[in-house]
Nucleic acid binder design. Structure first.
Length: 887
RNA sequence: GGGCACAUAGCUCAGCUGGUUAGAGCGACCGCCUUACACGCGGUAGGUCAGAGGUUCAAAUCCUCUUGUGCCCACCA
């Protein structure tokens, strides 16, 4: 029921501006700033988004507690193609065809969609309990971000880094737009490899192999490897292109693979990347035979005109066969590119598009990486990033869709050119006045002075263009704002490794180019969320876990803790329903333990002071100190999972299972104040350590106990705990006490279980080989094991067990009639394994290589161990003999 | 074709700058509704650390190879 308080805390964090840095001049604390990976406005948030936000929030909350001023900027991404695709689909269900709408009408619908979806997403982000500064919420198409986009485009344009021209690009015929190389996915398909005979003028023929026979209609050459002996003598001859009749040359190019197919390849510069490159170098003519609609153009013989590519393929094959030119058809596996959003098969074709010359940006990023910026977690992703950057080519910036930042280029009405809206983009060359780069419609042409109806380019920018500017644009760049000065570059970027290239690399390049600084010092790449079968989550598989479902059912803390506990940098994470069980149990445990302490303190009616007196106090203090040290170490490596596992163990395994149980007995026994004081003080520390992971439940507890804690602020604003003052000597004493105490208790419990004592039965135990200090705690041992420690008396049998390599001994005193077979078996098993261990050590010690070369401390350790084990073995043998006599 | 990662208990994963008899959670088994908690407590079982070599006094940990799995990149026409 503590989950009911979530809305209350969300409100308190918001109104108290927890996590929002104070005004710039008020304090000089170091700043920890982050920007959100802006979710697409395509729907609701899924598990990946939850991870994108919970993980950074853990670091933000931790940073806040360690005295930093934190800022995390929230926002959303307009997500060009993705959003338009979803909205089009949505319209379709209402029976509306997007093509029946004007650009303006469609824009209105898109804006409406953006408005509602945006607020849905932001609401969901709020619910995750992340410390965002919502007064700084941004959207990639809002005014601030748009002006950054314009500034970036125009300055790149002025530098000559942006150009427009016909190039081979990837085209999605469904979306009707160009795509960048990164927006492709590859699917393995089994198709055919056709061998086609091209007749050589002057006799003979050459056989080419192709997977796409329909593109032969656009061939402008046949290429062979210059050192291929089979074809050397044919280079320079001409062939007649079947079905078309065109004469095309046989050329030589090193990029041809002699081993593949027949070693001769048809060259279709307009519809293949490699052929384009060969065509460029050999100055081959272009024949655009496939149009942007995915059908054959008028560049082909009439009988194929307007056929779909697959229809044309069938027809071409049939016709070749009829002419006896089809030599063979063999099965062939190859990959086909599909659109990453709509999964439609894409066509490589030549189109007039806007490009960004990447070389200078890329080289700056490479140099930055060489001097260690940014630093990657996990480290190995840095190499992957570097390698990818090294081979990076120009970026196709333009998209032929509606939803996005329109290219800020205007055409002078006086210019003589194909208008930018022309149906085919191939010959869209501009003559006359150069285009004008301007955010608003120009009044007059700076070249010819004419005024009139300037036409804006119809294309919009790739959505990743604005995403790439995100860490700058959210702070108001290009304006020299206070925020920009203060928060840029950001401290840490957390995002999935799947968008390393699409996003992270581009942010780095833009950041360096425009500000000279890498936009973040560190990059944490998290893995993907998978289902319990290790599959990626997808709607079509129906295996999507909705974070809201978990939140509603078990609480946001459970969602957060489960994710944080499973998140290792760069590693995928399994999110099956029972992955949340452990987290749920833990959160409940925290709540219950706190409730116990609260109840006890209320009984006392005072606010007791903490003071460490009992060995158990020093022991638990050491446990917490070690936990804090370990957590700090792991946090430096951004290993939330390891940090939290340790905290989990300390809290549950040490504090709840042992310290609290001991405390109960101490409370019953004697002076309560110190015990209660310690319980509260320790709980407070745990709450602080837990807060970044499970803020709701810890805040609620802290609030409930605030009079005990003397709390004057929300938990999130408290300082990260320093280690408790425990001297080394105290720690060592406590550790020794703990080893004996825990050993005795555990052995007694085990004996009870093995001998079949009912939990309610009290049994008699005698202890030997222990010091007076431990004897003082006899009542604790009795309480924890439900036994009575006796020093005299007559019993039938003493079932004995060694503790700690035989230094101490417990004996369970029984009358008779118990089944001893289990105990015998256990003792002999332990005897065997002890003997084995002894044997190994003896062998080791007899080995001069070991005694000479091993470090002294290791050697001494082994000698001590051997002594202990031998003592233990003697006892075990003795016990066993005794038992054997009983039968 | 190139590269990266992973392979540890039935499942999900820690441990890996080499050094006790390899750990946790979930699941399984036995016993307990003990007044914070059955979302719990106590106990038990379960692993030749993928395989083969090598380095070393000593390898889950370092090196090499093999096998299997996942992912990324690539102009296999």
């Amino acid at each position: 029921d503590f989950t009911a308080s979530e809305p209350k805390w969300l409100k308190i964090w918001e109104t108290s501006q927890t996590g929002t840095p104070p005004a710039a001049d008020s304090d000089k604390s170091p700043v920890f700033s982050m920007v959100i990976p802006p979710p697409n406005i395509t729907g609701s948030l899924h598990m990946g988004h939850a991870l994108d936000n919970v993980l950074p929030d853990y670091f933000v909350r931790h940073a806040l507690m360690t005295g930093k001023h934190t800022l995390r900027v929230p926002g959303t991404d307009h997500a060009g193609i993705a959003t338009q695709f979803v909205v089009e689909k949505n319209l379709k269900t209402k029976g509306i065809d997007r093509n029946s709408l004007s650009r303006q009408e469609f824009e209105v619908i898109l804006k409406d969609w953006a408005q509602t979806t945006k607020s849905d997403i932001l609401n969901q982000l709020v619910g995750l309990g992340c410390l965002f500064d919502f007064t700084r919420t941004r959207f990639t198409m809002d005014e601030m971000c748009s002006s950054a986009v314009f500034e970036a485009f125009s300055s790149l344009y002025k530098e000559g880094l942006i150009y427009k021209g016909p190039r081979i690009i990837t085209w999605c015929t469904r979306c009707g737009s160009a795509l960048s190389d990164l927006e492709l996915e590859w699917e393995e398909k089994t198709g055919s490899l056709w061998h086609i005979s091209y007749p050589i003028i002057g006799g003979d023929s050459i056989i080419v192999a192709t997977t796409r026979p329909e593109t032969m209609l656009g061939d402008s050459a046949v290429a062979v490897h210059p050192e291929d002996d089979r074809y050397k003598n044919l280079i320079g001859k001409k062939v007649t292109l079947p079905l078309v009749g065109r004469e095309i040359p046989i050329i030589a190019d090193y990029r041809v693979d002699k081993e593949f197919g027949t070693g001769a390849v048809k060259v279709t510069p307009a519809h293949d990347q490699l052929d384009w490159a060969i065509g460029q170098d050999h100055d081959l003519p272009l024949y655009q035979v496939i149009g942007e609609n995915g059908r054959m153009t008028d560049q082909v013989p009439n009988r194929y005109f307007d056929a779909t590519t697959s229809l044309a393929r069938t027809q071409v094959v049939k016709d070749l066969e009829a002419q006896g030119l089809l030599i063979k058809e063999e099965k062939h596996k190859n990959s086909v590119g599909v659109c990453y959003r709509c999964s439609n098969i894409v066509e490589p074709l030549v189109s007039n598009q806007w490009f960004l010359r990447i070389a200078p940006l890329r080289d700056a990023a490479l140099k930055a990486f060489e001097r260690g910026e940014p630093r990657f977690y996990p480290e190995n992703w840095g190499q992957i990033y570097y390698k990818w950057l090294s081979g990076l080519k120009d970026w196709c910036l333009s998209r032929q869709i509606i939803w996005g930042h329109r290219i800020p280029i205007w055409y002078c009405p006086g210019m003589t050119s194909t208008p930018p809206d022309a149906p085919s983009r191939i010959n869209d060359t501009i003559t006359g006045c150069p285009p004008i780069c301007s955010q608003k419609k120009p009044i007059s042409c700076p070249t010819c002075g004419k005024s009139g109806d300037f036409v804006q380019d119809t294309d919009v920018l790739d959505t990743w263009f604005s995403s790439g500017l995100w860490p700058m644009s959210v702070f108001g760049w290009p304006a020299k704002t206070v925020d920009f000065e203060r928060f840029y570059p950001t401290s840490l970027m957390v995002t999935g490794y799947d968008i390393l290239y699409l996003w992270v690399a581009r942010m780095v390049m833009f950041g360096l180019h425009f500000t000279g600084k890498v936009p973040f010092k560190n990059v944490y790449l998290h893995g993907l969320i998978r289902d319990n079968k290790g599959r990626k989550m997808s709607k079509s598989l129906g295996n999507v876990v909705d974070p809201r479902g978990i939140q509603k059912e078990m609480g946001t803390d459970v969602l957060r803790f489960a994710m944080l506990q499973g998140a290792h940098p760069g590693r995928d994470m399994i999110a099956s329903p029972d992955a949340f069980t452990g987290a749920k149990n833990f959160v409940t445990k925290v709540w219950n333990a706190s409730r116990f302490i609260k109840l006890e303190c209320e009984k006392a009616g005072s606010t007791p002071r903490s003071s460490l007196t009992h060995p158990s106090d020093f022991w638990i203090a050491s446990s917490i100190n070690a936990t804090i040290a370990y957590m700090d170490e792991q946090m430096r490596e951004l290993e939330s999972a390891n940090a939290l596992r340790r905290l989990y163990d300390s809290f549950w395994g040490d504090f709840c299972d042992w310290y609290l149980e001991i405390a109960k007995l101490r409370l019953a026994q004697g002076p309560r104040d110190a015990v209660l004081g310690n319980l509260t003080a320790l709980l407070e520390r745990y709450l602080k350590l837990l807060q970044p992971a499970v803020p709701f439940v810890t805040h609620e507890i802290y609030e409930n106990l605030k009079s005990l804690f003397h709390a004057d602020r929300p938990l999130a604003a408290c300082a990260w705990p320093e280690p408790l003052g425990v001297s080394t000597a105290q720690q060592e004493t406590a550790a020794a006490w703990w080893a004996t105490f825990c050993g005795i208790v555990t052995e007694i419990r085990t004996l009870r279980n093995d001998l079949g004592f009912a939990p309610k039965d009290t049994c008699n135990v005698s202890l030997s080989g222990i010091d007076d200090g431990t004897m003082k705690d006899a009542y604790l041992i009795e309480g924890l094991t439900h036994c009575k420690i006796v020093t005299d008396g007559v019993y039938g049998l003493a079932i004995r067990r060694p503790v700690l390599s035989g230094k101490a001994e417990v004996a369970l005193l029984i009358d008779s009639g118990r089944d001893l077979s289990k105990e015998k078996q256990k003792l002999s098993l332990e005897l065997t394994s002890t003997a084995g261990a002894i044997g190994r050590i003896q062998m080791n010690l007899a080995n001069t290589a070991f005694t000479e070369r091993a470090p002294k401390d290791i050697l001494q350790k082994e000698i001590d161990r051997l002594a202990g084990l031998e003592k233990k073995r003697a006892k075990l043998a003795d016990y066993l003999k005794q038992l054997d006599g009983v039968v």
